[in-house]
Amino acid sequence: VFLGQKYGYRPLPTKIEEDEFLKITSVSSSEDDKLLNQWYKLDLNNFPSLYCLQPVSSIFTNFTNRAHPRLMEEDQSQWWETMGKLNRAVRVAAAELLQQGRFTAQDNHRYNWSVTEQEVVRGILNAKDVQEHTLAFFRHIENINVSLLRHSMKFIDIAAKQVDTEAQRMLSDLRDVRVPATLPESAILRYTVQWSDDDGLNKNVHAEYLQDFIETFYRRIVELIDQGVRAQHALAAN
């Protein structure tokens, strides 16, 4: 796993179990309730029944209309705005349900976690024998110039032109607490580099770091492969 200072994209849930969706709408504002019911429709063909996010083009009909670029651009812009509202709606509701004791902390977390965390959970935290086939590379860039948004947003979570503190808190819990609690220290490699206003990371300024990373990554992966081959041979011999 590679983890830096960006928690990453936090997706809108595409499917929500019926009872959970009804809990969410029960604590939502009338505006959020209307929006959620516009975009999520009940599918009774599943068990348990699910509320499913509708295709974007079913409402914004020009979302993929390349024949009319201006209309497509307008619908795409409207969708990004709508997606933000939907995300806020489910997260606000999940937090309220947690406060009321109707959601567990894990229930609430499912409406907030990033794609990156979901992959780490599946590939490391919930996987078997991770000590034998997993490496973690952590990189910290010091003195990130957040004001250079074109570059900084590639390396750290930004919201309203500032560091997204909520995303950073969730990343810190994943990178600094949960992964180290699962992997031995020998499987974790840490790098610290200085920010460069020229692209954030620059192949010339950071040449030494990049070369060391490439060589270390190659060597450690080969070691894991060789270790796995030896283990397979030992099993075959027995």
Rank of each mutant, 00 (worst) to 15 (best):
A105H: 13
V90P: 01
D75F: 04
D164G: 01
G101L: 03
R169W: 04
Q118K: 14
I144K: 06
V130M: 01
L98F: 08
E81T: 13
R70C: 00
K85C: 06
F103G: 00
M72K: 10
A160D: 15
Q100E: 10
G101M: 10
E166N: 06
L97G: 04
E142T: 09
K154M: 13
I141D: 03
Y111I: 00
F103T: 05
L97Y: 01
V163Q: 02
V130I: 10
V130E: 08
A95C: 09
V163G: 03
E117M: 15
H140L: 07
V146T: 01
Q106H: 13
M153G: 04
E74F: 02
R110A: 07
I124H: 03
D75Y: 01
L148F: 02
R150Y: 05
A160C: 01
A136L: 15
A167K: 00
T134F: 07
E166D: 05
H68E: 14
E74N: 11
R102Y: 08
I156A: 09
F155K: 11
D75H: 09
E96L: 08
M72G: 03
N108L: 08
D75V: 02
G101T: 09
K85H: 13
T165F: 00
G123N: 15
V130Y: 00
N87R: 15
A167P: 02
R122L: 07
W113L: 10
Q78F: 06
Q168I: 02
G123F: 10
E119L: 14
R102K: 15
N108M: 12
G101D: 08
T134C: 15
L98G: 04
E81S: 13
H109A: 03
L98R: 11
M72L: 04
T82A: 07
Q168H: 07
T82G: 11
R91E: 04
T134M: 09
L71W: 02
H133R: 15
I124P: 10
K154Q: 15
V90G: 06
E74A: 02
A160W: 06
M83N: 14
V146M: 06
T165M: 09
Q76E: 12
Q118Y: 11
Q131G: 14
L149V: 06
L98E: 07
L148E: 08
L135C: 14
V163F: 00
T104Y: 13
R139I: 15
I144F: 02
V92K: 14
N112S: 06
R150M: 00
